[in-house]
Amino acid sequence: MQGKSGGEQVHGHAYRGRFAPSPTGPLHFGSLVAAVGSYLDARAHGGEWLLRIEDVDRSRALPGAADSIRRTLEAFAFEWDGEVVVQSQRLDRYHAALTRLRLDGEVYPCACSRRAIAACSPVPAVDGGLVYPGICRAGLPPGRAPRAWRMRVPDREIAFEDRVQGPVQQNLARAVGDFILLRADGQYAYQLAVVVDDAAQGVNAVVRGVDLLDSTARQIWLQQRLALPTPTYAHLPVVTNAAGEKLSKQTRATAVDASGGCVVLAAALNFLGQPVPPEIRSGSLRDFWRWAIATWSMARVPAQRGVFPG
């Protein structure tokens, strides 16, 4: 599909956004909300919208899920620009970035197991793990082989202005500690892959779920160390189930039914603070998107985490 020319400027360049689902299962309502928000923000700015399949964690990828997600998006009449990028086909790019960081002294080998970290530092991290206490920062303990590669982080605040959540700041050393870029199983970490891909694709506006808000400071730090541009960020509220859990494969989220057409899309827009008139909800997909693009407002999107729709 051909990209659009022109468009509103972001950091001096035409707006370029993306939707980057992980193929861990079929598209569910929570992912649809993120797709709708990112798509409308891109089109309302006259910009491009890219589709990227984030399957760098092969242990979580479900066979056939990527094709299923793509078919569902097509059934809802989403239109993306350019070819679909697949992370598992871009490992050489992540290797090159890690090699650069190694040569610059920004990363180091780590021999620690989760048990060793828990024994040394039971401090909870923002990502659900434990804050890494820097055991291997000055070098591997004698006789220990490296298991992973970690990114050195500063003991200072990383701050940015989120378009939905407002001012955000995080001290990486206290929030997560030096974080992993290459895992013990040989797989590249999401943090590295997403930074490399956004820069390579020229993405300058990221719209995604607020469950990824705590990752942003790590990604900004990586961007700075790799001399890559930092996009703008907008973190949308995430959809939860009745138990307050984010919809996901782990919480057995059901696949969204594309046959619902405008009614389902209207529910996603309503969740994002954009009420849809009855005549639009009952009309064609073409008319729905035309209306939604013309009326989209990020300022109306609620900032709350884990809002349960109705």
Rank of each mutant, 00 (worst) to 15 (best):
Y94T: 10
G6H: 12
L62C: 04
A42K: 01
G7F: 14
V168L: 15
L212E: 06
R100K: 02
C120V: 03
G25D: 13
L140H: 10
A14P: 15
G261A: 07
P141A: 00
Y108S: 00
S215F: 04
M1W: 15
L212I: 12
L192M: 06
L73P: 01
L91N: 05
G202W: 09
I117P: 05
A292R: 05
P146D: 04
A97G: 12
R102M: 15
H45C: 08
A42M: 05
T251E: 09
G306T: 05
R183F: 05
V238P: 07
C112G: 08
G261C: 10
L50G: 01
A234N: 04
V84G: 07
R252F: 15
F288V: 14
F160I: 00
S297I: 03
V164E: 12
R60D: 02
A35K: 05
D155A: 00
V107M: 08
Q187K: 05
F288M: 11
F19N: 13
G143N: 13
A205G: 14
L269H: 08
R52S: 03
A44H: 13
A184M: 10
G7D: 00
G6F: 14
G306E: 00
V207H: 12
E83T: 09
R102H: 15
P275C: 09
P146C: 05
A242D: 14
